[in-house]
Amino acid sequence: MFAQPADDPRKNTLRPMVTGTSAIGIKYKGGVMVATDTIACYGNWIRYKDVQRIHAVSKDTLIAMNGEMSDYQKVLQILEQKRLAEYCVDDGSTQTSAELHSYLTRVMYQKRCKFDPLWNMLLVGGFRNGEAYLGYTDLYGTHFEDNFLATGLGMYMALPLMRNQWTPEMSEADARALLQMALKICYYRDTRASNKVQIARVDASGVHIDEPITLQGEWNHARFVEGGAKSGDGGW
């Protein structure tokens, strides 16, 4: 998905250095839930192992990131500035998730038109007035919504799972189970992914970002344990 850090960064302004991998999100009955793992890589090196990649940007909106950490921090800073400007207006209204998503898309598109993109794929999740919102934007300024979304390698591995299993009637527990399964698949097959994951949701009571949990995965299938002893060519 992302290029390796360049040999000579001074030659190349368009490169991600410290990156986070897939972010996944789904709507469920009564809320929206997003999830990421908690590592940031420097090339293939898992450099930072306790990084938060989901943040609340308003009382009922959160974003989950994929891509370059520094650009993500810039995005958070821009949105925090926006939130404070809104606080100062003091008219009691706050921006909806759809508005924040739209604004964010303009920021991303403007930067890419300067050939200096914010190297991220971002999910915007929110819940207000009984309605869940889930949107996507990226380093090109793409903008769309869906019932379930994934970024990075998760697009290839988590999305098919969610297409099969997602229903609009899913409960919070169903959503959590589906996200955990998707994260587990990413952990199995993405070199930049970890099994220490963080799940967050927005529902009628606001934003909740859970403490990270560790997924175990299945490693003790009889054929796994047996290994290649019978077939003998190293695979099985």
Partner: peptide, 10 residues
């Protein structure tokens, strides 16, 4: 202060 300009407390 990592390469690229991200800031991480550790």
């Amino acid at each position: 202060c990592a390469m690229g300009g991200s800031l991480i407390r550790r």
